[in-house]
Computed example of a mutant assay.
Amino acid sequence: MSLAENLANIKRTLRQPDRPTLLAVSKRVPASVIREAHALGMRHFGENYLQEALDKQDELHDLKDIYWHFIGRIQRNKTQEIARHFAWVESVDRLLIAQRLNSARQEVSTPLNVLIEVAVSSEDSKGGCPPAQLVALAEGIQQLPFLRLRGLMALVHPDPNQANVNFQQMHSLFNTLLQSGNYPDLDTLSMGTSSDFVQALEHGATEIRLGTRLFGSRHQEAT
């Protein structure tokens, strides 16, 4: 199926076509296909690998209304480039990384939107802040003037039953932060991928990450 058909099918599954935010996971997707997605109305694109993303940003520099999200693991020596070239960073899992992003963002006119990645799946292959440390990390980020704490993100367990537990936990953690009143910019709960986004929406996701569901398996192998 074409990209346009895939996008139309996705939107038909949503109760509100303009909600949630559709984050196109565009790793390994050529810039030409991202341009096509942009022409279809997509504006948010998530990249895992810094150099690949920078190359695409350069090729697509004429598209001024793209919002680039960095969604991969963050290496300390790459925080400066990430802070300078992205509008969102969705994989902040410790205060040191947040502090380095904050320092580098001083050179940009707008604050950097960040999500805290929370480790709820109990899988070693997935990163994230332990839930017990979430409040402390959120409080630390809130003190950094060049960052805006927008919400939480998680990659859940592949088993549907365990995923359901993870989604419930994320919704609860998000509500705890929201109800504290300490985080005025908090509005984003990012969870759900091509295989489980419908389930994620049932648990309050405001952003879903779609790779194979949107672009097909030619470019995406495991998103």
Rank of each mutant, 00 (worst) to 15 (best):
N161I: 07
L60R: 05
E36N: 12
D93F: 00
A136I: 08
S180T: 14
K64M: 09
S180N: 13
E107C: 12
L186A: 04
D18Y: 06
L115S: 04
M1F: 14
P130L: 14
N164S: 14
E59S: 15
T176V: 13
Q133C: 12
Q220N: 14
R43C: 09
R94Y: 06
E47F: 09
E52I: 08
Q169V: 12
V89T: 05
I82R: 00
D124K: 15
R209N: 05
V198K: 14
R84H: 13
V135I: 15
V92N: 01
S180F: 04
Y67C: 14
S217Y: 04
L152V: 09
Q99H: 00
H203A: 05
N166Y: 03
L178W: 11
L201S: 08
E90Y: 03
K126G: 05
R15Q: 15
A8E: 15
S180H: 08
A83G: 08
A39Y: 08
Q106A: 10
N166P: 09
V198Q: 15
A119F: 02
S195P: 01
R218T: 15
G128P: 00
K126D: 07
L144N: 01
A39E: 15
A200K: 07
L22P: 05
L137V: 01
R209G: 03
A154R: 02
D18C: 09
A87F: 10
L63A: 10
H69S: 08
R19Q: 14
H61P: 00
N48I: 09
L147V: 05
S194C: 10
L152N: 06
I116Y: 01
P111L: 09
R84S: 07
G181T: 11
E47W: 06
L214N: 07
K27F: 13
D196L: 03
A104M: 05
M170G: 03
S32D: 15
D55A: 15
K56W: 15
G151Q: 06
A98Q: 00
A4H: 12
N182Q: 14
H61I: 09
L7Q: 06
Q162F: 10
G216H: 00
L40E: 13
Q199P: 02
A163L: 10
S26Q: 09
A83W: 01
R43A: 11
G41C: 13
S195F: 06
T206F: 08
W88L: 03
L95N: 02
L60C: 07
P130R: 07
P145Y: 02
T79H: 00
G128T: 03
S2C: 08
G151D: 05
E59G: 10
R15E: 14
H44Q: 12
G72W: 02
I66E: 03
P111D: 02
L147Q: 01
T206M: 11
I116H: 01
A39M: 10
Q162H: 14
Q99N: 00
L152Q: 01
L152D: 06
M42F: 02
E90G: 07
N9W: 11
L115K: 03
I82S: 02
M153L: 10
Y183G: 07
S91M: 04
Y49R: 14
R213S: 13
L210W: 02
A37N: 11
L152I: 06
Q168C: 10
P131H: 08
E5Y: 11
A4L: 09
M42Y: 03
S194Y: 04
N9K: 13
V92C: 00
F197N: 03
R218W: 03
F215V: 08
G128L: 00
A119W: 06
V165I: 14
G140D: 00
G216R: 01
L115W: 01
